[in-house]
């Protein structure tokens, strides 16, 4: 126990406990839960959200927030949907879609890093704007008739494993290494902890913020394209419902909404927990509306819980004095 305490933080143990608990509940409540097919489809379902949540994690670590993540995803989905149905090839469509994502990221970063609008407010504005652009582009309709050549992204399997699942883990590994072992990663944490000290240490805070917001938008774009490919349609409001779950997963995964700490592994575990909850509910036949209730409750509980621990810590410290 002592050893465990040293190796892992309280939060990590609680998270692992919650994961195991839900896993056990799933295993006990329905025999299909542990079937390979179910597990693979579980991963297939969680990939899109997982990728978006990882992007959000980076932005949240910098002490920021991207409330436009969901509508960025929708905008990118609509963009590639349009390109594809207008007869453009898969590769050019993806490139244009990524280009739009970069523009979204740049717009957020300009508002946050250069004009210095509080990130929550700035991205609340762009959330609406991106949705508006996506609605205008798609004329308010869903775009169907996506060519089959695009289906590989969300429907192909490699060695029996869904492509998007491999993509999720590939990106996760990339981001973990980026955050842990590269200068940029270290700078992202420094920035989230103390913007001023980071600036004084020679970190180009503006560059790092641009990098983070663009990265987040690009991840949303990837998630959007996977979904377009999986469901063979593109809609402007595609990602809107994802935002809440993603923020909840990031926070549940141990990243503080105040920035400065946390990481990708926690976020992936957090998304897995939400995906399992949804999956179990589906298997058992509980209405999906419970998921919404559960997601909101978990977000509020985790945020309040973290805050209480923080206040406790602070109190203990000041008492010592």
């Amino acid at each position: 126990m002592e050893k465990l305490r040293k190796r892992f933080t309280l939060h990590e143990m609680v998270l692992a406990g919650a994961f195991l608990l839900i896993f056990l509940i799933g295993a006990c409540s329905n025999e299909n839960f542990l079937s390979i097919r179910n597990i693979l489809s579980l991963f297939q379902q969680m990939s899109e959200m997982g990728i978006m949540a990882m992007g959000l994690t980076i932005v949240i670590i910098t002490g920021g927030m991207d409330l436009s993540a969901g509508t960025t995803m929708g905008l990118c989905a609509v963009t590639s949907g349009l390109c594809l149905t207008k007869g453009l090839g898969v590769v050019p469509s993806l490139i244009i879609s990524l280009g739009v994502a970069v523009l979204c990221g740049v717009m957020n970063a300009v508002l946050v890093a250069i004009i210095r609008i509080p990130p929550m407010i700035a991205t609340l504005g762009t959330q609406m704007f991106f949705l508006g652009v996506a609605l205008v582009l798609s004329k308010g309709n869903s775009i169907s008739g996506i060519p089959e050549s695009f289906y590989f992204l969300g429907q192909a399997k490699i060695f029996g494993m869904p492509l998007q699942m491999l993509l999720l883990f590939g990106l996760a590994v990339f981001l973990i290494i980026m955050l842990k072992n590269t200068v940029t990663g270290q700078h992202i944490y420094a920035l989230g902890n103390n913007m001023k000290a980071a600036l004084f240490s020679g970190i180009r805070t503006t560059h790092v913020l641009f990098y983070s917001y663009i990265m987040c938008s690009v991840m949303c774009c990837i998630a959007g394209n996977i979904q377009v490919s999986r469901v063979a349609t593109a809609r402007a409001d595609m990602g809107s419902a994802f935002l809440m779950t993603c923020i909840s997963a990031v926070v549940l995964g141990g990243t503080s909404i105040n920035g400065g700490n946390g990481g990708i592994v926690g976020t992936v575990v957090g998304i897995m927990i939400f995906a399992m909850i949804g999956n179990i509910m589906n298997l058992v036949g509980i209405s999906s509306f419970w998921q919404q209730l559960a997601t909101g409750s978990i977000l509020v509980l985790v945020v309040v819980f973290n805050r209480m621990i923080e206040m406790q810590k602070y109190k203990v410290k000041s008492r010592k004095v």
Binding site: I177, N181, T182, V183, Q186, H187, Y189, A190, N193, N194, A197, A198, F200, S201, G202, I203, G260, N261
Partner: peptide, 27 residues
């Protein structure tokens, strides 16, 4: 001056991280 929630070593090396990279550009 300092980033209080980071370790001493991360604080001390923060300004020179770019100078101590491995061949793969890792820290």
């Amino acid at each position: 001056g300092l980033i209080l929630e980071m370790s001493m070593k991360d604080n001390i090396t923060l300004p020179i991280l770019k100078r101590i990279l491995t061949p793969f550009r890792f820290i």
